[in-house]
Design a protein around this nucleic acid. Sequence first.
DNA 1: GTACGATGTTCCAAATTACGGAACGAATTT
DNA 2: AAATTCGTTCCGTAATTTGGAACATCGTAC
Lengths: 241, 241
Amino acid sequence: MVVLETVADLQPVGVSELAAHLKQPKTSVQRALETLHEASWIRPAVGERTRWELTFRASRLARKAGNHFGLREAALPIMEQLRRETNETIHLAVLDDFEIVLIERLESPHAVRHVEPLGGRAPVLSTATGKAMLSCMDGDEVARVYNEAVKAESQSVAVAPPPSLDALMAELAEIAARGYATTTSWRQDVFATGAVIVAADRRPIAALSVSTPAGRATPENRALHAQLLPIAAQQISEHLF
Amino acid sequence: MVVLETVADLQPVGVSELAAHLKQPKTSVQRALETLHEASWIRPAVGERTRWELTFRASRLARKAGNHFGLREAALPIMEQLRRETNETIHLAVLDDFEIVLIERLESPHAVRHVEPLGGRAPVLSTATGKAMLSCMDGDEVARVYNEAVKAESQSVAVAPPPSLDALMAELAEIAARGYATTTSWRQDVFATGAVIVAADRRPIAALSVSTPAGRATPENRALHAQLLPIAAQQISEHLF
DNA sequence: GTACGATGTTCCAAATTACGGAACGAATTT
DNA sequence: AAATTCGTTCCGTAATTTGGAACATCGTAC
């Protein structure tokens, strides 16, 4: 499986290059490639015979990941309604380790709109969806995610300096109390409102967000989003079980 | 890896149920689950301890599958431009076995619009994207895909009766000559135009499509799409290498 | 409250499989 | 023409997997 993930990073890639990256004997890597090929997870690259690339086998799994108890099906109709009511882009995201993954998106009909790539990832600490999900997790788990996220962010280009853990905890308490999170720090000029979707036991499953360009983030619109979003998220939570 | 795929289908699922489905000893399945868990491909289901569900590890791969030579990055700006010029929904799809997989989507700004779920699959024989891709494959390969697709469709609810292989071949020749495919048979009330994106050696990589509700599919709009789409697909093909 | 069925887990010896160094052929570069 | 790089094959050793059986745990029915 490590070979598979490395092929994903380096594709199209041959045996020797892989072996060098993995610091493993060529023979072992060769065998792994044969196995992955037999199972149709990889195939020879277009027009080549000895370099490999991914097939779409992984994508069939990916569609099912994070779809616990029919999340996508439960969420889409309510997302559609929310888009009608707000005319803004609606995102559905789940938490993976210390990152937010976008699993569904409905775009705003406006000409100026906020669009994230499908399947894209975003930092948990600076997004409305991320903070909404953290707001209903217990302290230990928040601390764990916080540490991993800070470590990861310090290695990449800093989007914004992460808040202290104490400041974050205070903000999360506030978010939990009022039922929604907001942010502008992830994408400049985008104002986002996020609310959490929970399982029957109140554990966080996913988060829903409304994203609007800063120019349209009037007090009236902010208030509208803050009012509608928690209700929509709540409806999805109830439809899950 | 078979266990992994079965977990995807049955999640959340326990050892015994899996073993029964796979007709394998419980012990072997148990070991596979342990391994997958250690590698973070699965985790205990939310609020449970002995049933398993997928993590998002597969999604990281899925994003890279079908992204040969930076397809997504090359395609997006041109897709944006195409949306501006047509005001209709633009889809980017690739071929997986005998199905079309949607890997990127930009929605029409119109209130009435055609929306497919992200990562969704569609039959190759009845979609514009599918036929566009087939149109630049050689006869043997088309026949192979045709047979598999017919076999698969016969098991599910028939969307439309598949054409004969000869009729298909004739249509593909026409599509290849004029540079674009059209269809209305996949989704009723949706008129789609598709064109193929090729590698340097003219092998098909992906397909681009413009989808419009039947009501807006006027002769003028059809002509506009038929004119713009092959150019856009061609531009993406050239940017790939 | 106890018996039952279903489910998850552990153990262990036999047998299969993986391991990886070395050698080889083919393709490309010097 | 020699040298390097790359993919592939071979093979004895060694480690791992295998799966039946026993055990543990949970929920349920009587």
